[in-house]
């Protein structure tokens, strides 16, 4: 049953790891603007689609 020491150690390490990642993400400003990224992520695909159907020759220029 001493395995529980190891399990505990792992669980605490994982938890603390996630916690550190959280702190870093807040520090980098990820929580400052919670709206714009949700819109931004929808852009890219459409642009490429539009470029590839209308003007396939400019595709490389834009990428």
């Amino acid at each position: 049953m001493t395995i529980i020491y190891m399990l505990l150690a792992i669980s605490v390490t994982v938890a603390v790891l996630f916690f550190i990642v959280f702190i870093i993400s807040v520090k980098k400003g990820q929580y400052d603007d919670t709206y714009t990224p949700s819109v931004r992520m929808l852009f890219e695909d459409e642009v490429i689609k539009e470029v590839s159907t209308d003007k396939p020759q400019t595709k490389n220029d834009n990428q």
């Binding site: 400052d32 603007d33 714009t36 819109v39």
Partner: peptide, 8 residues
């Protein structure tokens, strides 16, 4: 580069 902050 340019980046928009929509809420602000």
């Amino acid at each position: 580069t340019s980046q928009v902050d929509f809420p602000k």
